[in-house]
Amino acid sequence: MNKVTGPKYGNAKQAEEWKLRLFVTDWAPRCIVAYRNLTRICQENIENRCNIEVVDILERPEAAREQQIVAVPTLLKLSPEPRRVLVGDFSNTERVLKGLDVGRWTKG
């Protein structure tokens, strides 16, 4: 397990950017919903300081294998650390925020 190289809890330094990778299967309805939910959450909570890379695993199945994608949609939080995997359509905002560690990186 990699050691987390981030601010200590209570340290109010904000993260620069969230680097996210979203795995979808083409524009399946659930994926569209997921994308919309994700962008909304990012706008509302982290002021768009996020870079979302969308990967269509139908086009790049090897990416699914490399990144161990089982469920769709899956969001990988590449940075800030630690790496997290979020699955689902992001309809549960609370869980998305928890998964993205938003609270830790924005509030003191």
Partner: peptide, 25 residues
């Protein structure tokens, strides 16, 4: 196929299309 439950946050509805895609390819 490795699934690490501790890393996974379930945020809503999903399917296992990833598995299908991998298997299919």
């Amino acid at each position: 196929v490795a699934i690490e439950r501790s890393e996974i946050e379930e945020t809503g509805e999903y399917d296992l299309e990833g598995l299908f895609v991998r298997l299919n390819s």
